[in-house]
Simulated scan of single mutants.
Amino acid sequence: MKILVMRPSPEGEKLAKILNYIGISSWHFSLFNFLPSTSPISLSKKIYELYTSDVILIFSKKSIYYTNLYLINNNLNWPISPDYYAIGKGTALFLKKYIKKKF
């Protein structure tokens, strides 16, 4: 049996390498990759949604990283009013660096 790691690069490749190193046969295949957007128009529309949302669900550390990068580059902060929910402990801990509220 082989493990298929579908986590985006480079984290997925690192995980597959670690699994192979400890004797768990695995390979990496990512269905998607995270990259910064090059379209400021679509981001400006999404930033409005970010600030007017009641609930924000966070699924990955990369989404936090790139959102935070966009906010910093545009002199913006993470909104305080929405309720934040993170999927996974690692993602929650990473989000806690940027969101100064309980979630």
Rank of each mutant, 00 (worst) to 15 (best):
M1P: 07
P8K: 13
P8N: 13
P8W: 09
P8S: 15
S9W: 04
S9I: 05
P10Y: 10
K14V: 12
K14P: 03
L15K: 06
K17H: 10
I18F: 02
I18S: 03
L19T: 14
L19F: 08
N20E: 05
Y21N: 15
I22M: 02
I24T: 07
S25Q: 01
S25C: 00
S26I: 09
W27A: 05
L31D: 04
L31Y: 11
S37H: 06
S37L: 06
S37Q: 04
T38K: 15
T38Y: 14
P40A: 09
P40E: 04
I47S: 01
Y48W: 07
Y48P: 02
E49Q: 04
S53R: 04
S53E: 11
V55T: 13
I56Q: 15
L57I: 15
F59Q: 14
F59W: 05
F59S: 15
S60D: 00
S60K: 02
K61Y: 10
K62A: 13
S63F: 07
I64Q: 07
I64E: 10
Y66T: 01
Y70V: 00
Y70N: 05
N75G: 06
N77R: 12
W78N: 03
P79W: 03
S81P: 08
D83W: 06
D83I: 02
Y84R: 02
Y84K: 06
Y84P: 11
A86F: 03
A86K: 02
T91A: 10
T91Q: 07
L95E: 14
L95I: 11
F103E: 06
